[in-house]
Design a protein around this nucleic acid. Sequence first.
DNA 1: ATAAAGTGACTTTTT
DNA 2: GTCACTTTAT
Length: 726
Amino acid sequence: MDYFQNLNPQQQQAVMATFGPVLVLAGPGSGKTRVLTHRIAYLIGAMGVPAYHILAVTFTNKAAREMGTRVTNLLDEQTQGLTLGTFHSTCARILRRESDKLPIDSNYVIFDADDQIRVVKQALQDLNIDDKQYRPVSVHAAISNAKNELIFPDDYKDQSYRGKVVAKVYRRYQELLLISNGVDFDDLLLWTAFLLDNFPEIRQKYARRFEHVLVDEFQDTNQAQYVLLKHLASFHNNIFVVGDVDQSIYRWRGADYRNVLRFEEDFPDAQIILLEQNYRSTQTILDVAMAVIDRNPHRKPKKLKTSRGQGKKVVFYEAYDDRQEGQYVVDTITSLVARHIANPGDFAVMYRTNAQSRLLEEAFLRANLPYKLVGAQRFYGRKEVKDIIAYLRLVYNPGDEVSLFRVINIPPRGIGNKTVIDLQILAQNEKDNPGKILINLSKGIESEYRHSFTKRAATVLSKFGELLTNWTELANQLSVLGLMDRIIEDAGYHEYIDDGTDEGHDRWENVEELRRLAAEYQDRGIESFLEDIALVSDQDTLNETTNVPTLLTLHAAKGLEFPMVLIVGLTDGILPHVRSFEDPEAMQEERRLFYVGITRAKDQLYLISSLNRSSFGFTEPVEESRFLLDIPDGFFFNERTTRSHSRWKTGISSTEPRWGTSVSKPDGDQTPQYSPGSRVEHPVWGEGMVLNSRMQDDEEIVDIFFEDLGLKRVAASLAKLEIKHD
DNA sequence: ATAAAGTGACTTTTT
DNA sequence: GTCACTTTAT
């Protein structure tokens, strides 16, 4: 078996690098996944390292799955025993095994983002803190940041007034999680790091086991992850990390690309390998990417090269507003597909914020075109899906208060607010768990809690407790799907959500989808099911099988590639986002985000901006993204529009304040002569398709797509266009 | 106890 | 222009 087939010299060097620390700095499209998979295969196949002794961590399940299949293909055998997963799922497994050392039980549940906010709210309420002044999301962010830096409540040292309040909330928040036998995402890392820090025998056990530790997307690790890795590699010292500081886009989540620099300091004997040869994009795309990223300060300049040739120029389009942006996207895709220049599945439409997807989706729906949207949140965030999961979580771990109070009266079963509060107070006084109190109540007359409630309340509560008891007993006998169906049946959930309306039908469809997912867990238990769905990322839901365009955020696009990439919303305030204006570090990250988007493109790039944008209900004029000004005109296919063109020429820097520009509006009194979709003949450029037309100062401005030239914007009176009739 | 109607905050990005 | 949370009416 040749483990170096189709690898360039640098890639080969990385694959068979000697043992010890290795840092691979890999530019976009330089084959870093290839290097990682080949190295794992090489270690197992050529070096005889048992798969059991190898640990490889990624950031998404999709990346892990992909690596798994590729390694298996290379080795032509099962890679039994290989530990390959995300940071979070790997930690989750370690915690289940070692929970006896920690204040959690092995059947702990993982609280998602929504649950975490609920717990913060509860903590604020318990401490009588005003949640208007201390917004749950912002308090949670502070707690999360602390956890990412491995700071426990007792070590929280912010002495400002606000800091002291946060410390109190943090302590209560953590108590509440433990009462529920739950952990949040950050806890998975925090508790594992705690375990390895404080129990030498456990650290030894794992550090000895993992002869080789390999890490993907190393620039996105936070401090907790970095410490974790150092512990895990502490015995054999074979740590192989791959990353690119220019693609670090998760600072807000605690990621610190400085970990790459820290790695060089902490492992001075590390081998450093550079992968610069790009196999993905055309040179034009790489040049544009470099023009953008080179403006970031304190970078080691990097030269991206490809052997793919210059390729086509970049198409720039300035739409009237964000709605028309969507129309342009759909028109462009339709037109290129109709001409057999590309397949629908070749396209990806990328945007900065999730909110932007709505108008795009509407444009696709109007045109009756299928698309796929990357975003697990969409599905798992649905009320009906969360309800069912909450039921399952509650059965798996009756201590889970968040899930209990979520479903205690869903569907309505006569347990009102008053009763719920009484139950909470009782639980607090008795230092018992509300879920267990319910189960106790279901014993009927013998229950000591019977008299703590009114007769009516005791009846409804014990009835629910009875259901819970039954399900808990069934949990061991039934499959996940069996249990789920039983719960839906007993709770009357189907009738509750499917009320005969269209929306009701949709809601039930979502439950059906969840049932299909559960069906895949026939031979794995409820534990795997709950863990997997708690740790799915947006990217994980993406499957390449369908030949339709993909809609996704720039963040979700990292690690992916598409022949045709359209980036929309290139206006100041969206990209770069307003929230980054005051913070230079954040602004640099916005630039990296744009860079990541650009470098996803293999063949052609469309950059789309608009003159007006609706935000917060109203439409207002907006400025073109300052990043666009950093791209020299020569890379664009079409003429830049007057507005940006003149600014480029006069050399007004992107940092200068901008004056209000006159915004052109379609004139209602005059009707454009050329309608979108119609075909026209241009004396020089030949045949093209009208994508858009609008009146401006008594002149019709027409955007026409020509097969060979791309998009052109012309004034109808000057261009001598001829309308073609089929 | 529950459904309907009103208020107010909110939009970065996600394991 | 949406969602979640609160108040009010039945």
